[in-house]
Every structure is written in structure tokens, then in C-alpha cells.
Amino acid sequence: MTPFSQTRFDLTGRAALVTGAGGGIGQAAAVSLAAAGAVVGIHFRSNDAGAQATLAAIEAAGGRGVLLQGDLTREDDANRVVDQFVQQIGRLDVLFNNAGDPLTRSSLEQCPTDLWMHAFQVNVHSAFLITRRAIPHLKASGRGSIINNLSLSVQTGGSGGAGPYAAAKGALQVFTRTLSRELAPLVRANCIMPGVVETRHHELFSTPEKMEDYRRQTPLARNSTSDEIAQSVLFLASDASSFMTGGVIDLNGGRFLR
């Protein structure tokens, strides 16, 4: 008998588009999907060097990737990214909406309207635009999968002025549930909800003391890595999760155990 991991996680013949694939979770997911056999669309907005590094890692392992640049808050760009990928590859089976931005921090009381609106533009509206364009291709796949990247802040409400970001990610979760209802049974839609991941995000927004505090709060006694999070993306992209839709994989090391 062929081992389960070799059958259900085999993405040979499928095409996966990863947004924000120039670093962190997006980069790790793109490399993991390619290693499982998928042709991967490597989307980036401005991080050309990061996207090139992702492509190089994929090609070094014998995989195939396609670079796709665009500002996904713009409808024309979002449409073009999907169209170019499908024109080059001929299909689209998996969409991982990873692109987003924690933005400048602000309490809700002091939050400028422009900051609030921008949080939803880059974290929700962009996912809506590219998903809408991708849906016909995902339906045609027969095994379409949408994966949206949430945040631990959905459960905490956002700390240290991350309220606008948390609210936007909460909206993205409801968006996922709506997709799961509207697109079933042809397309599945699920979320990952990472806890604290050792990425550039936390280099920018968390002090070393704060990162140590996160580790102390986590039963597994450490923060996660992008490669660990990528494995859950691979699971949701694959047939191993074929009966899962509308769900969330919580990846926080047990921080909310009661």
C-alpha cells in the first residue's frame, strides 16, 4: 500500500497561486506547494528580491514557479495576476490569500479613518478581488481550494494598537465562511490562523522581550516558524483535507488551552 502522505499530499498536475510570496509564510508555502508537485504562481507587490529568492528556491529543488507582480488592492492588477497565471499554466487549482499588512498601529479611539479603511483594503478587499477573479478557474479544477491567512489577533482583538488589523482579519474569516457555502461542492474554502511566527512582521512590531513573553505564554514553549505554518497550507491544498470546508486551523502552540 502506498503511504498516505505520498498519495494525499501529491499536488502533481495542479497549479497554486500564492499571494505575498516574497517572504515569510508566503515564501515557505510557495516552496512547500512546489515540492509537492504544484506549479506555483509567486505573487509580489514590491518585494522583487524576495520573490526572486522564492523562485530560485523552487527551481533549485526541481520545481516550477511563475513570477506575478501586482497591487492587489487595484482591481485591474488583481485580475491581471490571475489572468496571466492561467494563460501561462492553463489552470488554477489552489489560491492561498496570504498578502496583507499589519500597518501602523493605533488605538481605535485615535485611529484615523484612512488607516481603518486601508487596513480593510490590504487585508480583505485585496483577497476579495483576486478570489472573485479566480473562482471560475477554481470551479473548473474539480478540486479547487481557497486558503486564507488569518491572525491570532482575531482571537485576542489585537494588542498594542493592532485593532484595525484584527478587525480586518476577522472580516476575512467571515468572508471564508461565505465562500465555503457559496462554492460548495466544487470549491473548498478554509483558513489558517497562525500564532506568533518568527518572521519579519515580528521583527518590526515586537521587541525581543515581547517575543520571549510570547514564548512563555505558549505551552509548546516556543514560537512557530514559517515552514511549520506552510505545512498546514499544504494540507488544505491537498486531498488530505477533502472533507474540510469553512474551517480554521489554529496554529498557536496551545496558547488558548483552558
Rank of each mutant, 00 (worst) to 15 (best):
D93V: 01
G253L: 09
A237G: 12
L11T: 06
S242C: 12
L108M: 15
I130P: 01
G254W: 03
S159N: 12
Q6N: 12
R91D: 08
P112G: 12
S145T: 10
Q27E: 15
S145L: 06
S206R: 09
N97T: 11
D77G: 04
T131D: 03
Q87F: 12
P194H: 04
R64T: 10
D213G: 15
F243G: 07
G142R: 15
Q27A: 10
E198M: 08
V94H: 06
A189D: 09
R132G: 10
V197Q: 01
D76L: 10
G254Q: 04
V18F: 08
Y165H: 12
N98T: 01
T73I: 11
N97Q: 03
I42Q: 00
A119Q: 10
T12A: 13
T7H: 13
T54C: 13
D239R: 09
V122F: 03
A60F: 08
L11N: 08
L33C: 00
G246W: 05
H202T: 11
A30L: 06
I249R: 00
S145I: 07
A189M: 06
Q69Y: 06
G41W: 11
A56C: 04
L92G: 04
N123Q: 05
L236T: 05
S107R: 10
R105P: 04
D101S: 07
I192P: 00
I58D: 08
R64P: 02
M211D: 11
S126P: 07
A53R: 15
I89M: 02
L172Q: 00
R91L: 02
L179K: 05
G253Q: 07
G23V: 04
G62K: 12
E209W: 05
H118D: 09
G253R: 02
R181D: 05
S180G: 06
K169Q: 01
R255G: 06
Y165L: 10
N149D: 13
A34E: 03
I192M: 02
A53K: 14
F85V: 13
R143Y: 15
G37S: 06
I58F: 08
F9P: 02
H43V: 07
A119W: 04
A30N: 03
H118Y: 11
F235H: 14
Q217M: 12
D250R: 15
K139T: 04
F4W: 08
S180Y: 11
A127C: 07
Q69A: 09
L236S: 02
D83T: 09
Q173M: 10
T176I: 03
F175G: 00
M193G: 01
R215M: 08
S238A: 13
H43N: 15
G65Y: 10
G63E: 01
A119Y: 00
A36D: 09
T178S: 12
A28H: 14
V174Y: 00
L251D: 00
L129H: 09
L172S: 02
V66R: 08
F85P: 12
A36K: 12
G254P: 07
I58Q: 01
E203W: 14
A57H: 11
G142F: 15
P3H: 12
G163W: 00
L72Y: 06
F205Q: 08
C111L: 14
I89V: 15
P185S: 08
R91E: 06
D227H: 14
G254M: 01
G144V: 06
E182P: 01
G90Y: 05
T131C: 08
N98Q: 03
M244E: 00
A166H: 02
P102R: 03
F9D: 07
P136M: 10
D114W: 03
S206V: 10
P136T: 05
A51W: 05
K210R: 15
A166M: 02
V233C: 00
T131H: 06
